[in-house]
Amino acid sequence: MSALLTIEHMKTDIGQYKVLHDVSFSVPQEGVFVLLGRNGAGKTTTLRSIMGLWRPSPGSVRFREEDITGLHTADIARRGIAYVPEDMGIFGGLTVAENLVLATAGGTPEEGRLARIFELFPAIEKFWTKPARALSGGQKQMLAVARAIIEPRALILIDEPTKGLAPAIIDAMADAFAEVAKATPILLVEQNFHFASRLGTNVAVIEDGHVVHQGAMADFVADRALQERLLSLSA
């Protein structure tokens, strides 16, 4: 099976800073692909470069065998790639319902998809008419993911979804993400190794702007010496 998304020799500079030096990996057409690495390794820059928010040069991004390198972000999104940034990007002054309507192509959420979102994230239905700023951190994250899946997507990029969340919320989110991934592949950037290893089917590790490891998540979880070397994790 060909890869859904292929990154080859991506290099991204932000102003005078050279952030990505040589990033290459392939995301399969199913499951959760996890991008791991220490703080500042280049994980968020990789997602933003895929989405065209920052332009890699040189390097290439191929999606469904099409070269999308250099396309505008809106054009990339129209090809079925959704992006949930680390800051979630929700509109706090709008209601939960209005946030979802804005993410819907036709202006009206499809009933079946909306019912599925309520099933995955009950808080969305509970706070439907409330302003998004009134939600807790975990509920805002759920809303951000709900916006990403309110329309059919081919791939979802999610950046640090568990940051600052309570363990009980993280567990609930892991269950929801596992359900989402049954229908839509996810490229996940995450610092919480327990969360990442619970969800991930494949993994790549970035260090100083380079991919230094790529393989099956199960193999990475079993290799504690490799975890310690690449992520400073201890048993």
Rank of each mutant, 00 (worst) to 15 (best):
V19G: 00
V19N: 01
L20P: 09
V23T: 08
S24F: 10
S26M: 13
S26K: 15
Q29R: 14
V32A: 05
L36A: 03
N39Y: 15
N39S: 14
G40E: 14
A41W: 09
A41K: 14
T44D: 01
T45E: 11
T45N: 06
T45P: 10
T46K: 03
L47E: 00
L47P: 00
L47G: 02
R48K: 15
S49Y: 01
W54M: 10
P58S: 03
V61E: 00
V61Q: 02
R62H: 10
F63K: 03
R64Y: 06
E65A: 12
E66C: 09
I68V: 14
L71N: 02
T73P: 00
A74K: 11
D75I: 07
D75K: 13
I76R: 04
A77F: 02
R78N: 14
R78P: 05
P85W: 00
P85D: 01
M88I: 11
G92Q: 07
G92A: 15
G93A: 14
A97F: 12
L100V: 08
L100C: 08
L102S: 08
A105M: 06
G106D: 14
G106E: 08
G107Y: 07
P109D: 07
E110G: 04
E111G: 13
A115K: 15
A115E: 15
A115G: 10
A115Y: 04
F118H: 15
E119R: 15
E119F: 12
E119Y: 14
L120T: 13
P122M: 13
P122Y: 04
P122L: 14
I124S: 04
E125A: 12
E125P: 04
K126C: 03
K126Q: 12
F127I: 00
F127L: 06
W128D: 01
W128Q: 05
T129Q: 06
K130A: 11
